[in-house]
């Protein structure tokens, strides 16, 4: 590396390193707290090195039905992600590659609905779910959220990049849309589909507001609602709460670190065209 280049990169690295410390400190501190001795979690100046008290995790695990919450969350997240992927692929393909009357108008309406915050529909959706007798169930946490405008948009953007002659050749050969999509479009769309899947997997793992409202029982509650009520209990010791926070964060953080290229790259790709 030449001196000039080092001079150029040095300040960049310094600023980026500073930003990184600020961004990662809370995550580090969460880990430290979760391993502190129960009597002395806090102090001034703050303790930056743990006591390696791994018992915290065992005690936290016993305090609330985490196993149940984890199973619920995994099941909900898996079903939700599958549903979102299916609806996004079909609709994204239709908007990108099929022609039918009213397509542009329907697409504009779908994008327009992106403006509606979830909060606005909470009351009517709660009533709809009550009428379906779906309150406090798994399907209440899967079906109403099963179509994602972001997912449809991302899949459409991808299918738009498929060369037209590919479909024309298929059409000449008499292949219908569904077969074309399943045999050719979908394998090619794998990177985009993985992005949609990861994005919604993360969203499902972290979802809070909707399950908070539509569930009332531990048997169907997901992990974030469980953590929130664990945090609200007066008897919860800080170190155990930190251990709970680590437990609910670790799976998604590991998933992210393994798949960050697809997730981050895919999100970058939507931004370009936005």
């Amino acid at each position: 590396m030449t001196a000039r280049r080092a001079l150029e990169l040095g300040p960049r690295y310094l600023l980026l390193a500073l930003a990184l410390v600020l961004f990662l400190f809370p995550i580090y501190w969460m880990a430290v707290l979760s391993l502190d001795a129960p009597q002395t979690p806090f102090g001034l100046p703050p303790k930056l090195w743990p006591d390696w008290e791994f018992n915290n995790f065992a005690s936290a695990w016993k305090a609330v039905p985490w196993g149940r919450y984890f199973l619920n969350t995994v099941f909900i997240a898996a079903m939700y992600t599958l549903l979102v992927c299916a609806t996004s692929v079909l609709a994204g393909y239709a908007f990108a590659s099929m022609s039918f009357p009213g397509k542009a108008l329907i697409f504009a309406c779908v994008l327009g609905m992106y403006m509606v915050p979830q909060e606005v529909t909470l009351v009517p959706n709660y009533v709809i779910l009550a009428k379906l007798t779906w309150l406090n169930s798994f399907q209440a946490q899967i079906v109403p959220l099963g179509a994602s405008i972001f997912g449809i948009f991302l899949m459409r953007q991808f299918f738009l990049t498929l060369p037209k002659d590919l479909w024309e050749a298929a059409q000449l050969d008499g292949v219908g849309h569904l077969r074309f999509l399943l045999l050719i479009g979908l394998p090619l769309a794998r990177p985009a589909l993985v992005t949609v899947a990861l994005f919604h997997l993360v969203a499902a793992w972290n979802s809070f507001l909707w399950p908070l409202i539509v569930t009332s029982d531990d048997s169907v509650r997901p992990i974030q609602v469980g953590l929130s009520s664990f945090a609200a209990a007066d008897s919860t010791q800080p170190v155990l709460l930190a251990a709970g926070a680590v437990m609910t964060t670790l799976p998604i953080l590991v998933l992210f670190l393994v798949a960050q290229k697809q997730l981050v790259g895919g999100i970058a790709a939507t931004g370009i065209r936005g």
Binding site: A19, L20, F23, L24, P26, I27, W29, M30, L33, V202, W205, N206, F208, Q224, L227, S228, A231, L241, A242, G244, A245, V246, T248, T249, I252, L253, F256, L257, Q260, L263, V264
Partner: peptide
Amino acid sequence: ALLFSPYVMPVIATTVI
């Protein structure tokens, strides 16, 4: 990736911290 990582972390868990 590291700068992005807070975004994937659950709001409840990180708010606790």
